[in-house]
Design a protein around this nucleic acid. Structure first.
Length: 488
RNA sequence: GUCCCUAUCGUCUAGUGGCCUAGGAUGCUACCCUUUCACGGUAGAGACACGGGUUCAAAUCCCGUUGGGGACGCCA
Protein backbone atom coordinates (compact mmCIF):
# COMPACT_ATOMS: atom_id res chain seq x y z
CA UNK A 1 0.00 0.00 0.00
CA UNK A 2 1.41 3.33 -0.95
CA UNK A 3 1.36 6.09 1.62
CA UNK A 4 -1.20 8.84 1.40
CA UNK A 5 0.15 11.96 -0.28
CA UNK A 6 0.54 14.91 2.06
CA UNK A 7 1.73 18.26 0.76
CA UNK A 8 2.11 21.51 2.60
CA UNK A 9 2.47 25.21 2.12
CA UNK A 10 4.49 26.97 4.77
CA UNK A 11 4.45 30.74 4.38
CA UNK A 12 6.19 33.11 6.71
CA UNK A 13 3.76 35.87 7.63
CA UNK A 14 5.91 38.88 6.87
CA UNK A 15 3.65 40.62 4.38
CA UNK A 16 1.22 39.88 1.58
CA UNK A 17 1.20 36.59 -0.27
CA UNK A 18 3.65 36.94 -3.16
CA UNK A 19 2.56 35.52 -6.51
CA UNK A 20 5.47 33.10 -6.33
CA UNK A 21 4.18 31.84 -3.01
CA UNK A 22 0.72 31.59 -4.46
CA UNK A 23 2.01 29.40 -7.26
CA UNK A 24 3.84 27.15 -4.79
CA UNK A 25 0.63 26.86 -2.80
CA UNK A 26 -1.32 26.13 -5.97
CA UNK A 27 0.95 23.31 -7.11
CA UNK A 28 0.98 21.77 -3.65
CA UNK A 29 -2.78 22.07 -3.42
CA UNK A 30 -3.28 20.65 -6.92
CA UNK A 31 -1.08 17.66 -6.26
CA UNK A 32 -2.84 16.83 -3.00
CA UNK A 33 -6.22 17.11 -4.73
CA UNK A 34 -5.04 15.09 -7.68
CA UNK A 35 -3.76 12.29 -5.48
CA UNK A 36 -6.65 12.38 -3.05
CA UNK A 37 -4.27 13.43 -0.31
CA UNK A 38 -3.99 16.20 2.25
CA UNK A 39 -2.91 19.78 1.87
CA UNK A 40 -1.48 21.17 5.08
CA UNK A 41 -0.99 24.84 5.87
CA UNK A 42 1.70 25.71 8.38
CA UNK A 43 2.67 29.19 9.49
CA UNK A 44 6.41 29.72 9.80
CA UNK A 45 6.53 32.54 12.28
CA UNK A 46 9.77 31.92 14.12
CA UNK A 47 11.22 35.23 13.01
CA UNK A 48 9.65 37.29 15.74
CA UNK A 49 11.03 40.52 14.40
CA UNK A 50 9.25 40.24 11.08
CA UNK A 51 6.21 38.03 11.64
CA UNK A 52 2.93 39.69 12.48
CA UNK A 53 -0.58 38.53 13.31
CA UNK A 54 -1.93 40.84 10.63
CA UNK A 55 0.20 39.21 7.99
CA UNK A 56 -1.09 35.80 8.98
CA UNK A 57 -4.61 37.02 8.37
CA UNK A 58 -3.63 38.61 5.07
CA UNK A 59 -2.00 35.42 3.84
CA UNK A 60 -4.96 33.34 4.96
CA UNK A 61 -7.32 35.71 3.18
CA UNK A 62 -5.26 35.60 0.00
CA UNK A 63 -5.34 31.80 0.00
CA UNK A 64 -9.08 31.85 0.57
CA UNK A 65 -9.53 34.35 -2.24
CA UNK A 66 -7.66 31.97 -4.53
CA UNK A 67 -9.68 29.08 -3.16
CA UNK A 68 -6.86 26.78 -2.09
CA UNK A 69 -8.52 25.24 0.93
CA UNK A 70 -6.33 23.42 3.40
CA UNK A 71 -7.34 20.21 5.13
CA UNK A 72 -5.18 20.92 8.17
CA UNK A 73 -3.82 24.17 9.54
CA UNK A 74 -4.92 27.48 11.02
CA UNK A 75 -8.67 27.85 11.59
CA UNK A 76 -9.39 24.23 10.71
CA UNK A 77 -6.98 22.50 13.10
CA UNK A 78 -5.96 18.89 12.60
CA UNK A 79 -4.44 15.93 14.42
CA UNK A 80 -0.79 16.90 13.96
CA UNK A 81 -0.91 20.49 15.17
CA UNK A 82 -0.32 23.05 16.31
CA UNK A 83 0.19 24.55 12.87
CA UNK A 84 1.90 27.74 13.98
CA UNK A 85 5.61 27.22 14.55
CA UNK A 86 5.52 29.74 17.36
CA UNK A 87 3.27 27.29 19.21
CA UNK A 88 5.58 24.33 18.65
CA UNK A 89 8.54 25.62 20.60
CA UNK A 90 8.57 22.76 23.09
CA UNK A 91 8.78 20.29 20.22
CA UNK A 92 11.83 22.02 18.78
CA UNK A 93 13.38 22.30 22.21
CA UNK A 94 13.00 18.59 22.80
CA UNK A 95 14.55 17.83 19.40
CA UNK A 96 17.42 20.19 20.11
CA UNK A 97 18.09 18.46 23.40
CA UNK A 98 18.22 15.13 21.63
CA UNK A 99 20.91 16.38 19.26
CA UNK A 100 22.80 18.07 22.07
CA UNK A 101 22.89 14.87 24.12
CA UNK A 102 23.95 12.84 21.11
CA UNK A 103 26.74 15.37 20.49
CA UNK A 104 25.32 16.13 17.08
CA UNK A 105 24.94 19.73 18.15
CA UNK A 106 26.63 22.06 20.60
CA UNK A 107 26.18 25.38 22.31
CA UNK A 108 28.00 28.36 20.86
CA UNK A 109 28.73 31.45 22.92
CA UNK A 110 30.53 33.47 20.29
CA UNK A 111 29.50 37.09 20.02
CA UNK A 112 28.04 38.66 16.90
CA UNK A 113 31.10 40.87 16.65
CA UNK A 114 33.47 37.94 16.64
CA UNK A 115 31.37 36.05 14.12
CA UNK A 116 31.16 39.08 11.88
CA UNK A 117 34.89 39.67 11.99
CA UNK A 118 35.60 36.02 11.28
CA UNK A 119 33.31 36.04 8.28
CA UNK A 120 34.91 39.16 6.84
CA UNK A 121 38.37 37.69 7.20
CA UNK A 122 37.35 34.41 5.62
CA UNK A 123 35.87 36.18 2.61
CA UNK A 124 38.93 38.36 2.29
CA UNK A 125 41.16 35.28 2.38
CA UNK A 126 38.98 33.50 -0.15
CA UNK A 127 37.85 30.86 2.31
CA UNK A 128 34.22 29.83 2.66
CA UNK A 129 32.71 31.96 5.46
CA UNK A 130 31.99 29.07 7.79
CA UNK A 131 31.96 28.94 11.55
CA UNK A 132 35.36 27.95 12.92
CA UNK A 133 34.04 25.55 15.56
CA UNK A 134 35.56 27.46 18.47
CA UNK A 135 32.75 26.36 20.79
CA UNK A 136 32.44 22.80 19.55
CA UNK A 137 34.52 21.59 22.47
CA UNK A 138 32.35 23.16 25.13
CA UNK A 139 30.74 20.21 26.88
CA UNK A 140 27.01 19.94 27.37
CA UNK A 141 27.42 20.31 31.13
CA UNK A 142 29.68 23.36 30.86
CA UNK A 143 27.31 24.96 28.45
CA UNK A 144 24.34 24.43 30.75
CA UNK A 145 26.30 25.92 33.61
CA UNK A 146 27.14 29.01 31.59
CA UNK A 147 23.52 29.40 30.59
CA UNK A 148 22.53 29.11 34.27
CA UNK A 149 24.73 32.08 34.96
CA UNK A 150 22.84 34.08 32.39
CA UNK A 151 25.17 33.81 29.43
CA UNK A 152 23.48 33.78 26.04
CA UNK A 153 24.17 30.85 23.76
CA UNK A 154 22.91 29.52 20.45
CA UNK A 155 22.86 25.89 19.41
CA UNK A 156 24.83 24.87 16.36
CA UNK A 157 24.36 21.71 14.36
CA UNK A 158 27.60 19.79 13.91
CA UNK A 159 28.18 18.91 10.28
CA UNK A 160 28.62 15.12 10.16
CA UNK A 161 32.07 14.08 8.99
CA UNK A 162 31.11 10.75 7.48
CA UNK A 163 30.11 11.82 3.99
CA UNK A 164 31.80 13.90 1.30
CA UNK A 165 28.55 14.69 -0.44
CA UNK A 166 24.80 14.39 -0.19
CA UNK A 167 22.65 13.45 -3.15
CA UNK A 168 18.92 13.50 -3.56
CA UNK A 169 16.49 13.22 -6.42
CA UNK A 170 14.57 16.38 -7.10
CA UNK A 171 11.29 16.01 -9.00
CA UNK A 172 12.11 18.95 -11.21
CA UNK A 173 15.89 19.00 -11.34
CA UNK A 174 16.76 15.35 -11.24
CA UNK A 175 19.71 14.18 -9.21
CA UNK A 176 21.33 16.98 -7.25
CA UNK A 177 24.57 16.60 -5.32
CA UNK A 178 26.03 18.96 -2.75
CA UNK A 179 29.47 18.64 -1.21
CA UNK A 180 29.24 18.37 2.58
CA UNK A 181 31.73 21.16 3.13
CA UNK A 182 29.45 23.58 1.38
CA UNK A 183 28.12 24.54 4.80
CA UNK A 184 29.63 25.12 8.20
CA UNK A 185 28.14 24.28 11.59
CA UNK A 186 24.94 26.25 11.39
CA UNK A 187 22.68 27.61 14.09
CA UNK A 188 19.50 25.65 14.77
CA UNK A 189 18.44 27.43 17.95
CA UNK A 190 18.96 31.15 18.37
CA UNK A 191 20.31 32.52 21.61
CA UNK A 192 16.84 33.87 22.38
CA UNK A 193 15.53 30.31 22.30
CA UNK A 194 13.83 30.61 18.93
CA UNK A 195 14.62 27.83 16.46
CA UNK A 196 15.68 28.56 12.91
CA UNK A 197 13.93 27.82 9.63
CA UNK A 198 15.99 24.87 8.40
CA UNK A 199 15.51 23.09 11.69
CA UNK A 200 11.79 23.68 12.25
CA UNK A 201 11.06 22.88 8.68
CA UNK A 202 12.56 19.40 8.95
CA UNK A 203 11.06 18.63 12.35
CA UNK A 204 7.62 19.78 11.23
CA UNK A 205 7.63 18.13 7.82
CA UNK A 206 8.70 14.87 9.45
CA UNK A 207 6.23 15.05 12.33
CA UNK A 208 3.40 16.15 10.08
CA UNK A 209 4.01 13.26 7.73
CA UNK A 210 4.65 15.41 4.69
CA UNK A 211 5.46 13.24 1.68
CA UNK A 212 6.06 15.88 -0.99
CA UNK A 213 7.74 19.22 -0.44
CA UNK A 214 7.25 21.72 -3.25
CA UNK A 215 9.02 24.99 -2.63
CA UNK A 216 10.86 27.79 -4.34
CA UNK A 217 14.24 27.27 -5.92
CA UNK A 218 15.97 29.52 -3.42
CA UNK A 219 15.58 26.64 -0.95
CA UNK A 220 17.46 24.20 -3.14
CA UNK A 221 20.76 24.64 -1.36
CA UNK A 222 18.99 24.57 2.02
CA UNK A 223 18.17 20.98 1.20
CA UNK A 224 21.71 19.96 2.08
CA UNK A 225 21.35 21.19 5.65
CA UNK A 226 17.92 19.73 5.90
CA UNK A 227 19.08 16.33 4.69
CA UNK A 228 21.70 16.35 7.42
CA UNK A 229 19.04 17.06 10.00
CA UNK A 230 16.72 14.38 8.64
CA UNK A 231 19.62 11.98 8.86
CA UNK A 232 20.49 12.91 12.43
CA UNK A 233 16.95 12.07 13.57
CA UNK A 234 16.66 9.11 11.21
CA UNK A 235 13.52 10.62 9.79
CA UNK A 236 12.59 9.53 6.25
CA UNK A 237 13.31 12.07 3.55
CA UNK A 238 10.28 13.44 1.71
CA UNK A 239 10.24 13.92 -2.04
CA UNK A 240 11.46 17.40 -2.96
CA UNK A 241 10.56 19.58 -5.90
CA UNK A 242 12.21 22.96 -6.30
CA UNK A 243 10.15 25.34 -8.35
CA UNK A 244 11.73 27.96 -10.56
CA UNK A 245 11.79 31.62 -9.63
CA UNK A 246 9.26 34.08 -11.06
CA UNK A 247 10.91 37.02 -12.78
CA UNK A 248 9.85 40.52 -13.77
CA UNK A 249 9.92 41.84 -17.34
CA UNK A 250 13.63 42.66 -16.97
CA UNK A 251 14.37 39.03 -16.06
CA UNK A 252 15.29 39.95 -12.53
CA UNK A 253 13.56 38.27 -9.62
CA UNK A 254 10.06 39.69 -9.32
CA UNK A 255 10.15 42.35 -6.65
CA UNK A 256 8.41 45.48 -5.50
CA UNK A 257 10.12 47.68 -8.04
CA UNK A 258 8.39 45.71 -10.80
CA UNK A 259 5.05 46.94 -9.54
CA UNK A 260 2.49 44.48 -8.31
CA UNK A 261 3.90 41.32 -6.74
CA UNK A 262 1.24 40.24 -4.30
CA UNK A 263 -2.08 38.53 -4.82
CA UNK A 264 -3.79 41.28 -2.92
CA UNK A 265 -2.58 43.86 -5.42
CA UNK A 266 -3.87 41.82 -8.34
CA UNK A 267 -7.18 41.46 -6.59
CA UNK A 268 -7.33 45.21 -6.18
CA UNK A 269 -6.48 45.72 -9.83
CA UNK A 270 -9.57 43.75 -10.73
CA UNK A 271 -8.22 40.32 -11.56
CA UNK A 272 -10.33 37.24 -10.93
CA UNK A 273 -8.95 34.50 -8.70
CA UNK A 274 -9.92 31.97 -11.39
CA UNK A 275 -7.76 33.75 -13.96
CA UNK A 276 -4.94 34.22 -11.50
CA UNK A 277 -4.93 30.51 -10.70
CA UNK A 278 -5.02 29.49 -14.34
CA UNK A 279 -2.23 31.91 -15.21
CA UNK A 280 -0.02 30.90 -12.30
CA UNK A 281 -0.52 27.22 -13.12
CA UNK A 282 0.90 27.83 -16.58
CA UNK A 283 3.97 29.59 -15.25
CA UNK A 284 6.18 26.54 -15.14
CA UNK A 285 3.69 23.82 -15.94
CA UNK A 286 1.78 22.85 -19.06
CA UNK A 287 -1.22 20.66 -19.69
CA UNK A 288 -0.47 17.47 -21.67
CA UNK A 289 -3.22 18.35 -24.17
CA UNK A 290 -1.76 21.82 -24.78
CA UNK A 291 -4.90 23.62 -23.60
CA UNK A 292 -4.36 26.88 -21.79
CA UNK A 293 -7.76 27.84 -20.46
CA UNK A 294 -8.18 25.41 -17.60
CA UNK A 295 -10.46 25.80 -14.62
CA UNK A 296 -9.68 24.22 -11.28
CA UNK A 297 -11.27 20.89 -12.16
CA UNK A 298 -9.28 20.74 -15.40
CA UNK A 299 -6.12 21.60 -13.53
CA UNK A 300 -6.65 18.90 -10.95
CA UNK A 301 -7.44 16.38 -13.64
CA UNK A 302 -4.37 17.19 -15.73
CA UNK A 303 -1.86 18.18 -13.09
CA UNK A 304 1.28 16.12 -12.82
CA UNK A 305 4.62 16.70 -11.18
CA UNK A 306 6.60 15.49 -14.16
CA UNK A 307 5.38 18.36 -16.34
CA UNK A 308 6.93 21.01 -14.11
CA UNK A 309 9.50 23.17 -15.89
CA UNK A 310 12.79 24.05 -14.22
CA UNK A 311 13.65 27.37 -15.85
CA UNK A 312 12.67 30.72 -14.40
CA UNK A 313 9.56 32.33 -15.90
CA UNK A 314 8.74 35.97 -16.55
CA UNK A 315 5.42 37.11 -15.11
CA UNK A 316 3.67 38.56 -18.17
CA UNK A 317 0.88 40.82 -17.04
CA UNK A 318 -0.32 41.27 -20.62
CA UNK A 319 -1.12 37.59 -20.91
CA UNK A 320 -2.72 37.63 -17.48
CA UNK A 321 -5.01 40.39 -18.72
CA UNK A 322 -5.99 38.38 -21.76
CA UNK A 323 -6.76 35.41 -19.56
CA UNK A 324 -8.71 37.54 -17.13
CA UNK A 325 -10.76 38.93 -20.00
CA UNK A 326 -11.70 35.48 -21.22
CA UNK A 327 -12.80 34.43 -17.72
CA UNK A 328 -14.68 37.69 -17.32
CA UNK A 329 -16.75 37.09 -20.44
CA UNK A 330 -17.60 33.55 -19.42
CA UNK A 331 -19.02 34.61 -16.07
CA UNK A 332 -22.81 34.65 -15.65
CA UNK A 333 -23.90 38.29 -15.43
CA UNK A 334 -25.33 37.93 -11.98
CA UNK A 335 -21.95 36.75 -10.74
CA UNK A 336 -20.03 39.30 -12.77
CA UNK A 337 -22.11 42.15 -11.37
CA UNK A 338 -21.36 41.10 -7.81
CA UNK A 339 -17.68 41.24 -8.58
CA UNK A 340 -17.82 44.53 -10.40
CA UNK A 341 -19.94 46.22 -7.74
CA UNK A 342 -17.18 46.93 -5.19
CA UNK A 343 -15.14 48.68 -7.87
CA UNK A 344 -18.09 50.80 -8.94
CA UNK A 345 -18.84 51.58 -5.32
CA UNK A 346 -15.38 52.86 -4.56
CA UNK A 347 -15.61 55.06 -7.65
CA UNK A 348 -18.70 56.67 -6.15
CA UNK A 349 -21.17 55.52 -8.79
CA UNK A 350 -24.91 55.63 -7.96
CA UNK A 351 -25.34 51.98 -7.06
CA UNK A 352 -28.27 52.67 -4.80
CA UNK A 353 -30.41 54.30 -7.48
CA UNK A 354 -33.42 52.27 -8.51
CA UNK A 355 -32.09 51.94 -12.04
CA UNK A 356 -28.66 50.61 -11.04
CA UNK A 357 -30.22 48.22 -8.55
CA UNK A 358 -32.36 46.65 -11.25
CA UNK A 359 -30.99 43.23 -12.17
CA UNK A 360 -32.43 43.47 -15.68
CA UNK A 361 -30.49 46.69 -16.21
CA UNK A 362 -27.35 45.17 -14.75
CA UNK A 363 -27.63 42.26 -17.13
CA UNK A 364 -28.24 44.53 -20.12
CA UNK A 365 -25.35 46.87 -19.36
CA UNK A 366 -22.94 44.03 -18.73
CA UNK A 367 -23.64 42.49 -22.10
CA UNK A 368 -22.80 45.88 -23.61
CA UNK A 369 -19.65 46.48 -21.61
CA UNK A 370 -18.06 43.13 -20.84
CA UNK A 371 -16.39 42.72 -24.22
CA UNK A 372 -14.36 45.83 -23.57
CA UNK A 373 -13.28 44.83 -20.07
CA UNK A 374 -10.02 43.10 -19.25
CA UNK A 375 -10.24 43.63 -15.51
CA UNK A 376 -13.12 44.28 -13.14
CA UNK A 377 -11.75 47.75 -12.64
CA UNK A 378 -12.23 48.49 -16.34
CA UNK A 379 -15.95 48.61 -15.57
CA UNK A 380 -15.50 51.91 -13.78
CA UNK A 381 -14.92 54.25 -16.75
CA UNK A 382 -17.54 52.31 -18.70
CA UNK A 383 -20.25 52.69 -16.09
CA UNK A 384 -19.21 56.26 -15.52
CA UNK A 385 -20.63 56.92 -18.98
CA UNK A 386 -24.07 56.04 -17.65
CA UNK A 387 -23.83 58.27 -14.59
CA UNK A 388 -25.59 61.60 -15.21
CA UNK A 389 -23.68 63.36 -12.45
CA UNK A 390 -20.32 62.93 -14.12
CA UNK A 391 -21.47 63.29 -17.72
CA UNK A 392 -19.04 65.36 -19.74
CA UNK A 393 -17.97 65.73 -23.32
CA UNK A 394 -14.53 64.28 -23.78
CA UNK A 395 -11.79 66.10 -25.65
CA UNK A 396 -11.45 63.46 -28.34
CA UNK A 397 -15.13 63.97 -29.16
CA UNK A 398 -15.03 67.71 -29.83
CA UNK A 399 -14.17 67.20 -33.47
CA UNK A 400 -17.82 66.48 -34.23
CA UNK A 401 -18.70 70.09 -33.39
CA UNK A 402 -16.59 71.31 -36.29
CA UNK A 403 -18.81 69.50 -38.75
CA UNK A 404 -21.40 71.58 -40.51
CA UNK A 405 -24.20 69.05 -40.19
CA UNK A 406 -23.75 68.41 -36.48
CA UNK A 407 -25.91 71.29 -35.26
CA UNK A 408 -28.95 70.05 -37.11
CA UNK A 409 -28.30 66.45 -36.11
CA UNK A 410 -28.18 67.34 -32.44
CA UNK A 411 -31.28 69.48 -32.63
CA UNK A 412 -33.19 66.72 -34.37
CA UNK A 413 -31.96 64.15 -31.87
CA UNK A 414 -33.17 66.27 -29.00
CA UNK A 415 -36.52 66.62 -30.69
CA UNK A 416 -36.76 62.87 -31.16
CA UNK A 417 -35.98 62.21 -27.51
CA UNK A 418 -38.51 64.80 -26.40
CA UNK A 419 -41.15 63.29 -28.63
CA UNK A 420 -40.64 59.79 -27.27
CA UNK A 421 -43.46 58.51 -25.12
CA UNK A 422 -42.47 56.59 -22.04
CA UNK A 423 -39.34 56.51 -19.93
CA UNK A 424 -37.54 53.66 -21.62
CA UNK A 425 -36.23 52.85 -25.05
CA UNK A 426 -36.02 49.60 -26.94
CA UNK A 427 -33.52 48.87 -29.68
CA UNK A 428 -36.35 49.38 -32.18
CA UNK A 429 -37.18 52.75 -30.61
CA UNK A 430 -33.64 53.87 -31.10
CA UNK A 431 -33.50 52.66 -34.69
CA UNK A 432 -36.66 54.63 -35.49
CA UNK A 433 -35.25 57.76 -33.90
CA UNK A 434 -31.93 57.40 -35.65
CA UNK A 435 -33.68 56.87 -38.98
CA UNK A 436 -35.68 60.01 -38.41
CA UNK A 437 -32.51 62.04 -37.79
CA UNK A 438 -30.92 60.49 -40.84
CA UNK A 439 -33.73 61.44 -43.22
CA UNK A 440 -34.65 64.77 -41.67
CA UNK A 441 -31.07 66.02 -41.61
CA UNK A 442 -29.92 64.14 -44.68
CA UNK A 443 -26.74 62.80 -43.06
CA UNK A 444 -25.27 59.37 -42.86
CA UNK A 445 -22.14 57.51 -41.79
CA UNK A 446 -19.97 59.02 -39.16
CA UNK A 447 -21.66 62.42 -39.54
CA UNK A 448 -24.76 60.78 -38.18
CA UNK A 449 -23.66 58.36 -35.52
CA UNK A 450 -20.70 60.16 -34.08
CA UNK A 451 -22.60 63.28 -33.02
CA UNK A 452 -25.34 61.00 -31.69
CA UNK A 453 -22.88 59.03 -29.62
CA UNK A 454 -21.47 62.25 -28.25
CA UNK A 455 -24.99 63.29 -27.31
CA UNK A 456 -25.50 59.99 -25.51
CA UNK A 457 -22.19 59.25 -23.77
CA UNK A 458 -19.96 62.24 -24.50
CA UNK A 459 -17.59 60.13 -26.59
CA UNK A 460 -17.21 59.61 -30.33
CA UNK A 461 -16.24 55.97 -29.94
CA UNK A 462 -17.70 53.20 -27.87
CA UNK A 463 -20.38 50.57 -27.76
CA UNK A 464 -23.23 50.45 -30.25
CA UNK A 465 -25.89 53.06 -29.64
CA UNK A 466 -28.71 50.62 -30.23
CA UNK A 467 -27.42 48.74 -27.20
CA UNK A 468 -26.46 51.77 -25.16
CA UNK A 469 -29.68 53.78 -25.50
CA UNK A 470 -31.91 51.00 -24.13
CA UNK A 471 -29.78 51.16 -20.98
CA UNK A 472 -30.77 54.79 -20.40
CA UNK A 473 -33.81 56.75 -19.30
CA UNK A 474 -35.50 59.51 -21.27
CA UNK A 475 -34.71 62.15 -18.64
CA UNK A 476 -31.05 61.25 -18.81
CA UNK A 477 -30.88 61.39 -22.60
CA UNK A 478 -32.71 64.70 -22.60
CA UNK A 479 -30.39 66.26 -20.11
CA UNK A 480 -27.38 65.13 -22.10
CA UNK A 481 -28.86 66.35 -25.36
CA UNK A 482 -29.25 69.79 -23.81
CA UNK A 483 -25.69 69.93 -22.52
CA UNK A 484 -24.33 68.88 -25.88
CA UNK A 485 -26.36 71.34 -27.88
CA UNK A 486 -24.89 74.18 -25.83
CA UNK A 487 -21.47 73.24 -27.15
CA UNK A 488 -22.20 74.42 -30.63
C1' G B 1 35.40 33.71 -4.43
C1' U B 2 33.11 28.59 -3.73
C1' C B 3 28.88 25.47 -4.56
C1' C B 4 24.18 24.58 -6.94
C1' C B 5 20.26 25.43 -10.58
C1' U B 6 19.00 27.17 -15.48
C1' A B 7 19.07 28.43 -21.13
C1' U B 8 13.42 26.97 -27.62
C1' C B 9 9.68 32.94 -31.07
C1' G B 10 9.33 39.71 -27.26
C1' U B 11 6.71 36.63 -23.27
C1' C B 12 4.50 31.64 -21.36
C1' U B 13 5.58 27.03 -23.34
C1' A B 14 5.38 21.86 -26.50
C1' G B 15 9.47 18.85 -27.59
C1' U B 16 12.71 13.03 -23.52
C1' G B 17 17.71 10.96 -30.56
C1' G B 18 14.70 10.24 -36.47
C1' C B 19 7.43 12.06 -36.83
C1' C B 20 10.92 19.31 -36.48
C1' U B 21 10.53 22.60 -42.97
C1' A B 22 10.50 23.23 -34.45
C1' G B 23 3.92 23.00 -32.64
C1' G B 24 0.46 25.97 -29.45
C1' A B 25 -0.82 30.41 -26.56
C1' U B 26 -0.12 35.57 -25.80
C1' G B 27 1.54 40.04 -27.89
C1' C B 28 2.41 42.39 -32.76
C1' U B 29 0.90 43.22 -38.20
C1' A B 30 -2.73 42.65 -42.12
C1' C B 31 -7.43 41.30 -43.74
C1' C B 32 -12.73 39.85 -42.77
C1' C B 33 -17.10 41.00 -39.68
C1' U B 34 -18.75 45.97 -38.24
C1' U B 35 -21.78 53.10 -40.08
C1' U B 36 -17.16 53.84 -34.67
C1' C B 37 -14.88 51.00 -30.36
C1' A B 38 -14.59 46.20 -28.46
C1' C B 39 -15.72 40.98 -29.20
C1' G B 40 -15.21 37.19 -32.92
C1' G B 41 -12.85 34.95 -37.48
C1' U B 42 -8.63 34.24 -41.02
C1' A B 43 -3.64 34.93 -42.40
C1' G B 44 1.50 36.61 -41.59
C1' A B 45 6.18 37.88 -39.35
C1' G B 46 8.78 35.75 -35.11
C1' A B 47 13.06 31.00 -31.49
C1' C B 48 16.50 25.94 -30.54
C1' A B 49 22.56 31.40 -26.61
C1' C B 50 27.63 30.02 -28.50
C1' G B 51 31.72 26.40 -29.36
C1' G B 52 33.28 21.48 -29.32
C1' G B 53 32.19 16.31 -29.13
C1' U B 54 29.04 11.30 -29.21
C1' U B 55 25.85 9.24 -33.28
C1' C B 56 24.07 7.01 -39.68
C1' A B 57 21.00 10.98 -37.30
C1' A B 58 21.03 16.12 -31.95
C1' A B 59 16.54 21.38 -30.00
C1' U B 60 16.91 16.58 -27.50
C1' C B 61 22.95 13.07 -24.85
C1' C B 62 28.20 14.71 -22.99
C1' C B 63 31.99 18.69 -22.17
C1' G B 64 33.21 23.78 -22.19
C1' U B 65 32.06 29.14 -22.77
C1' U B 66 28.70 32.97 -22.08
C1' G B 67 24.17 34.91 -20.05
C1' G B 68 20.48 34.61 -16.03
C1' G B 69 19.20 32.98 -11.07
C1' G B 70 20.00 31.02 -6.14
C1' A B 71 22.85 29.66 -1.76
C1' C B 72 27.13 30.34 1.38
C1' G B 73 22.66 34.42 7.92
C1' C B 74 21.24 33.75 15.32
C1' C B 75 16.04 35.56 7.44
C1' A B 76 12.50 32.28 5.38
Amino acid sequence: MSTRVRTRFAPSPTGNLHVGGARTALYSWLYAKKMGGDFVLRIEDTDQARSTKESVQVVLNDLKWLGYDWSEGPEVGGPLGPYYQSERLSIYKEHTERLLKAKKAYYCFCTDERLEKMKEEAIKAGRPPHYDRTCSHVSYEDAKARLEKGEKGAVRFKIPSGKDAYTFKDIIRGEVTFPSDMVGDFVILRSDGMPVYNFCCVVDDALMGITHVLRAEEHLSNTLRQMMIYESFEYPLPTFGHLSIILGADKQKLSKRHGATSCKQYEEMGFLPEAMTNFLALLGWSSPDGKEILNKEDLIKNFDLDRLHGAAAVFDEVKLKWMNATYLRELPHLDLWKRVEPFLASAGLPLTSSLWKDSGWQDKTLSVFKTSMETLKDAVPLYQLLDDETFKIQEEAKEVFTWESTKAVLAEWKKQVEGHTGDDFTEADFNTMQDAVKTNCNVKGKFLFMPLRVAVIGKAHGAELKQLVPCMKKSSLLRRAEIVSKEI
